Amino acid sequence: MGQEYALEWLDQMVNELDPQRTKPENLDNDQSIAIVDKAAKEEKRLIRLFKHFVFQEQKNRQIRKSVNHYLSASLNLMRIASDNLNRLPTQADNFRLALQSVFSCLSEVSAFIVQRYKNLVDRDTPLNMVSIDSQKHDLRNLENRDIMKNNPGLSELVIRSFSDIFVDHRAGEITMRKLDYWASVSHAVTHSIDLLEMPEAFDHLEMVLIERNFNSPLFVKYLTSKFSDILKHSCNSSQDTQKLALLQKIFNQIPVMKDIIFDNHFDDLSLTINAWFIEEIDFQSKSCSAEMTRVDVQPSKTGKNYERKTSDKIMCNLTVDQLSLFLKAADLSNIISARSLSAVFQSVAPHLSTPHREDISHSSLRVKSYTVEERDKSLLIETMTRLMEQIKDL
C-alpha cells in the first residue's frame, strides 16, 4: 500500500462525527445520505484492497505488521465511533444514521481482515467489537454428544467456561487465541471417537482438555479433587504414594498439543498439576515415614535423605536475587522462552542450589523478580562480563 493510509476517509469521518465537535442537529438529510453512500463504497473499496493486500508486500513480517496495524487502527476507530453513538441525543436521526454507516463499514472491514488473515492477526488482540461467528464452535450445541453426557459435571464446567467468554462476556476480551482454542475443543468433541487405549484414570473429555492445556483454575480444582477422591478411602500412606506416582505418570504421558492454551495468564496445566503431585506425594511420604518411625525404633541415619534429594542439583554461585534477575533478563530478551516467567521459575528452581540456599522455591524467585536491587544488578553485570571474556577465550 506504499505510503497510503487506507482508512483516511473513515478516520476523518469518525473525528468529524463527534457530537462534542459538531452539533448533531446541524447535519441535514442530504449530508447524511452522502455519508451513507460513501461508507458503502468505501467498504467495497477496502475489502477489494485487502483481498490483494498480500501481493503488495514483499516479506511475511511486513505483511503481518501491516495487517495488525490496520486491524488495530480500525478497532480503535470503532471504539471511538461507538462512544460517539452512545453520546448522541435522541433527536439526531441524520447524525446517527451517518455515524452508524461509518461504524458498520469499519466493522465489516475489520471482520474481513480477521477472517482473511487469521494466521497473521496478533493472537491476543481484543476482537470483541468484530463481527465473529462463534456459533459453529458453541459448546452448548454439543452437550448431547456421548463424550459430554458421559461426564455431565465436567461438561457443565466446559460449557460455562465457553459461555463466560462468548455469551456472557464475563471472562475478558475475545481474542484469536481463544477462538482457536474453542474451535479445537469443539472439533474434538464433534469428531470424537472411542479410543482403544484410553487410560483408565481419565475419560475422553478429560483427555481432550488435558491435551489442549485447559489451564482453567476450575479444571485444576476438578482434577485435584478427582485425585484426592481416589485416596479418600485409603488408610495406607505407602499405597497412596504409589497411587499418586502412578497417576502422575499417566497424566504426564498424555500428549499435549503445541502452542495451545486456554488462558496465557495462568501457568500451563502440566506445571500446576505436577506441582500439586509433588506436594501431595511429599506429604504422603512424610506421613508414611512418620508411621514407620513409630514402628521402627532403630536410629535413622541423618543427612542421607537430603543428600539423595539434592544430589543431582546444580550449584549456582549467584544469590537467589541475582539468579532471579538473570532469569528475568533472559526471559525478556527471549534467550529463554516459556508460557510465563513464573513457568521458567517453576521449571528451574527444583534443579538449582546456591552456596547459601540448598533449596530454592520458585515462589522466592518470583517475589525477588518484582524488586531489583542496584547492587545485585552491578554484581550480575560483573559476572556476565567475566562470562563474556570466557566465551571470547574459547
Score class of each variant (00 low, 15 high):
Tyr5Glu: 14
Trp9Asp: 08
Gln12Ala: 15
Glu16Val: 13
Asp18Pro: 04
Arg21Gln: 09
Glu25Val: 10
Ile35Phe: 04
Ala39Phe: 04
Lys44Gln: 15
Phe53Met: 09
Val54Trp: 05
Val54Met: 09
Lys59Glu: 13
Lys65His: 12
Leu75Ser: 08
Ala81Leu: 10
Asn84Pro: 01
Asn86Met: 15
Arg87Pro: 04
Pro89Tyr: 06
Thr90Glu: 14
Ala92Thr: 10
Ala92Arg: 05
Phe95Ile: 08
Leu99Met: 10
Cys105Gly: 10
Glu108Asn: 15
Ala111Arg: 10
Ala111Ser: 15
Lys118Trp: 12
Met129Glu: 14
Met129Cys: 06
Ser131Gly: 05
Ser134Leu: 08
Gln135Leu: 11
Asp138Arg: 08
Glu143Thr: 15
Asp146Cys: 05
Asp146Gly: 07
Asn151His: 12
Ser161Ala: 15
Ile165Lys: 01
Glu173Leu: 11
Thr175Pro: 02
His191Ser: 04
Met207Cys: 08
Leu209Gln: 09
Glu211Tyr: 01
Pro217Gly: 09
Leu231Phe: 03
Leu231Val: 02
Asn236Leu: 01
Gln239Thr: 06
Asp240Ile: 08
Leu244Trp: 05
Gln248Val: 01
Lys249Tyr: 05
Asn252Glu: 06
Met257Lys: 15
His265Lys: 12
Asp268Gln: 08
Asp282Leu: 05
Lys286Glu: 09
Val295Asp: 10
Asn317Phe: 07
Thr319Ala: 01
Asp321Leu: 01
Phe326Tyr: 13
Asp331Leu: 08
Asp331Trp: 12
Ser340Leu: 03
Pro350Gln: 05
Ser353Leu: 12
Ile360Glu: 00
His362Tyr: 14
Arg366Phe: 13
Lys368Leu: 07
Glu373Gly: 10
Arg375Ala: 12
Asp376Arg: 02
Met384Gly: 00
